[in-house]
Amino acid sequence: MMAGLEFTKYLLSRPAPGSAGATGTWRTYRPVVNQDKCIKCGLCWLYCPEDTIDWLEDKSVRINYDYCKGCGICAEVCPVKVIDMVKETVV
């Protein structure tokens, strides 16, 4: 780094997950997808605020529980209602 530009290390930031910590711990309810009944429409992926749902190559979805906050939007928008919001238990 050019002399004098050290401040950019603190002034600038770069994209990385978990910028507000492990937000999965915020969750009270966990979305669980019934993969067998999923119609692979991708709406849960499209509306997830946190970008914690991946819409995979085969159009199935995978939820990143490290960061999912459990808002339940995915379950709400699922047209076939195959996402259940399951109460988290103490591990």
């Binding site: 994209p15 990385a16 997950p17 978990g18 910028s19 507000a20 910590g21 492990a22 937000t23 915020w26 605020p49 946190e50 970008d51 914690t52 990143n64 490290d66 960061y67 999912c68 906050k69 459990g70 808002c71 339940g72 939007i73």
Partner: peptide, 13 residues
């Protein structure tokens, strides 16, 4: 990038 400081269900994201 997941793990933001937004409230759950935030419309802005």
């Amino acid at each position: 990038m997941p793990g933001t400081a937004a409230c759950p269900g935030c419309p802005l994201l």
